[in-house]
Write a protein that binds this DNA or RNA. Structure first.
Length: 271
DNA sequence: GTACGGCCCTGTTAGC
DNA sequence: TGCTAACAGGGCCGTA
């Protein structure tokens, strides 16, 4: 389940292999989620950026190919043509290369991913991206600003984090990790300035650990070369329901918040 | 505008 | 052993 660290890892791997390559052909699975892939045929790729959990591939005609990996999306290169026999192939791009053409494949088993082509910077057709809050390391995202943003809603803190509005790029895993680290109950509906500040620090630390580890691989996530991340070894809350809290030894509890599995320590993270 | 529920998807796992 | 149901969950959309 790619969140910011996984998407950033893939971005770093993709950028050097896509920049200044021309898209000479493309194809897609027959679905509006993926069919815009072909709209970049004939363009040259100028760069690969990331915003929230979206990969943004800019082209030389002032447009952007925006890709969300969903739950199971991943990229892989092929030196031959696209593997059309792969039932999970959702889109592919044939690119010029220094050693001849190669194919970038987008494989997504569960089809939660999506692809759009937009005018550069115009994300009105992608609501979550359009409304995404600041990047975690944006200097403008101070504890005060984060607190103010969280205070605008009475929804559960975890729900707000998953909305991408107070901070961009946090998904289910890193939300649980940050909340545990900051000792904030995921169902809390209001935080003081101090606790909001601690949560911001904890989320940044969790995301940074994830980036440094090359992402978290639980089931499907793979880097461009098929490599797995190692951050799953660092997880202290996510998926540890029923196990002892690493801080106080209390049995960790699991439940649903915003229809997402959530794990927290009932002692450290009192409501 | 905000909140909330339901849906999209398919591989894996648990339960019978 | 084989079948069925539950589960995983980010983003979007319709409804209240």
């Amino acid at each position: 389940m790619p969140e910011l660290p996984e998407v950033e890892t893939i971005r770093r791997q993709l950028a050097p292999r896509l920049t200044q390559r021309e898209v000479i052909d493309a194809g897609s699975f027959a679905s509006q989620k993926f069919s815009p892939a072909i709209e970049v045929i004939g363009t040259t790729i100028e760069g690969v950026e990331r915003r929230a959990k979206y990969l943004i591939i800019s082209t030389d005609d002032d447009r952007e190919l925006v890709v969300h990996l969903g739950m199971t999306g991943r990229f892989q290169f092929s030196s031959t043509g696209p593997d059309l026999a792969n039932p999970h192939l959702r889109a592919w791009w044939r690119l010029t290369g220094p050693d001849g053409p190669e194919t970038l494949e987008f494989v997504d088993t569960r089809r939660f991913g999506r692809i759009r082509v937009v005018a550069a910077g115009d994300y009105r057709s992608i609501p979550t991206l359009h409304q995404a809050g600041p990047e975690p390391w944006d200097p403008a995202l101070t504890a005060k600003a984060f607190h103010r943003s969280l205070s605008r809603s009475r929804r559960a803190i975890k729900t707000q984090l998953l909305s991408q509005r107070p901070i961009a790029g946090v998904g289910n895993i890193y939300a649980d990790e940050g909340l545990w680290d900051a000792r904030v109950n995921p169902r809390a509906t209001r935080l003081g300035l101090d606790r909001a500040g601690r949560l911001l620090v904890a989320l940044r630390a969790a995301l940074e650990r994830g980036v440094n580890a090359g992402g978290t691989t639980l089931r499907d996530y793979r880097g461009l070369d098929g490599s797995v991340g190692s951050n799953q070894e660092e997880l202290r809350a996510y998926g540890r329901g029923g196990e002892p809290c690493l801080r106080c030894g209390t049995e960790m509890r699991s439940g649903q918040v915003d229809a997402r599995s959530t794990t927290w320590c009932p002692a450290c993270q009192r409501y």
